[in-house]
Design a protein around this nucleic acid. Structure first.
Lengths: 251, 251
DNA sequence: CAGGTTTTGACAGGTTTTGATTGAAAAGGC
DNA sequence: GCCTTTTCAATCAAAACCTGTCAAAACCTG
């Protein structure tokens, strides 16, 4: 492998993960630790990373400058995300809605050969340079802060589309169905549901029983729901009655 | 095999993969390493690639990649970008094509109240959280490395659009017109030209007289061209004859 | 076809990169 | 505190790579 190519990829890896160990890099690139050490020294010299004992950390502007990484309930979301990602098979076409949980799902999908469709800028940033993933971005009016594309352009793009699975999260769930916080967002998500053969929803148990501003869809529109274990027997039967397959992630 | 054909294909390969090793090229084309070395030297001379130890890397309009962090032509690009940004008035609608120069333009636009349309992921990242800027992203197949959305989805989104100005850069300029390095990209850029009332092109003087793989449009399609000062009298008249207003940026 | 030019492959000599080794420095356990 | 483990910087020989050169081959051109 070429010197510059290796350094480039090392840099990308560090940008993505925040921190990478020397040992891991050496193994990954099939190079000696001496070599990786010299690469890190170089990247440190040009100010792109900061060396630390045992590895290196990223210093530059964060690509995913958004909130994330500091949100609460992260481990729970990661568990759910991992469970969802495991059920997605190589070669499939997946539509990823915006949101921190779906971003975690995207992280877990790295490495699998897939066709990914999304309207989320952070997810696009994460996946754009993954060699195995063919990435299609749904354009539209880019909503600040969340970085999600909405509006008529997004609707038009989605209307002619067919995907196997839609992965989305939700703001609240009642017996009536799913809710989210924003009307524009809900409009777009309805289009997504129409475009998908199966609708998979990530929902931590806190969302149950809570509604939100905008009604999205009935429970019956959902194919599978991934929740953490703290879900009452009551809810389980309600979901089952609506035809939703419930997957409970282990602790 | 013909020399020029081989060089073209080498260039294409490098553009596709980002990095290619000398050894791989020699094997692929059944030529000696000396020959490939000379080809790379030539392509480096005309600025299409950058030689690295053991092979070569693409220097075109990369953004996410590490290349960019070393290029020397940055101040020049920044001067041109600044000149363009100054001519854009508050409240206008601007379509920004992908590329490092247009990214610099975007940087200079921060703070102005504008409606910005783009198919470039890096530009979207830069502007998504700017309070005064309403950002619309053209979706499509997201091309790796450059982070530009192309393909039929992009074409569809552009076809129903009207903007005041298109800002784009180019890979090469001859009397016949403008060129760029990639067929898919050129298709999309033609749509952009159709959607815009005025077409503004950023072009450093090195691009003049050089063609690239794919033909884009005649000179007459361009409204204004922004170049740095080193432009021959000959070219100035050629451009003027084609009806292009030329703006030369000061040193 | 002869004479001249360009391109090609091979090779020698010099430079850069690499991986192994070694002793020193830092971190962690007890 | 003291000892063990891990990490680091420095050094060095080997390998990989580059530059420049040269003669042979391919290709113009008249």
């Amino acid at each position: 492998m070429l010197v510059d190519q290796r350094r480039d990829e090392i840099l990308q890896l560090i940008e993505q993960q925040g921190f990478v160990s020397l040992h891991e890099l050496a193994e990954r690139f099939g190079a000696s630790e001496s070599t990786v050490r010299r690469d890190l020294e170089y990247l440190d010299d040009i100010g792109q990373i900061r060396r630390t004992r045992g590895g290196a950390a990223y210093t530059g502007d964060h690509i995913t400058s958004f909130e994330e990484r500091h949100t609460t309930a992260l481990p729970q979301k990661q568990r759910i995300a991992k469970a969802i990602a495991q059920e997605i098979l190589p070669g499939q076409t997946v539509l990823l809605d915006g949101g921190t949980t779906t971003l975690e799902v995207a992280r877990c999908l790295i490495g699998k050969p897939l066709q990914v469709v999304t309207n989320s800028l952070p997810i696009a940033n994460l996946l754009v340079n993954q060699p195995n993933i063919e990435l299609i971005f749904i354009g539209g009016y880019l909503y600040p802060r969340t970085g999600v594309a909405l509006g008529s352009l997004a609707a038009a793009a989605l209307s002619g589309m067919q995907v196997e699975r839609l992965i989305m999260s939700t703001g609240g769930i009642t017996e009536r169905g799913l809710y989210n916080s924003n009307t524009l967002l809900v409009d777009c998500e309805r289009q997504m549901i129409d475009a998908a053969q199966e609708v998979w929803v990530a929902a931590d148990s806190q969302k149950f029983g809570r509604s939100a501003l905008a009604y999205l869809c009935p429970l019956s529109a959902v194919t599978r729901m991934f929740v953490d274990c703290d879900l009452s027997e009551n809810w389980r039967t309600t979901l089952a009655d609506a035809g939703v397959t419930v997957s409970v992630t282990e602790h």
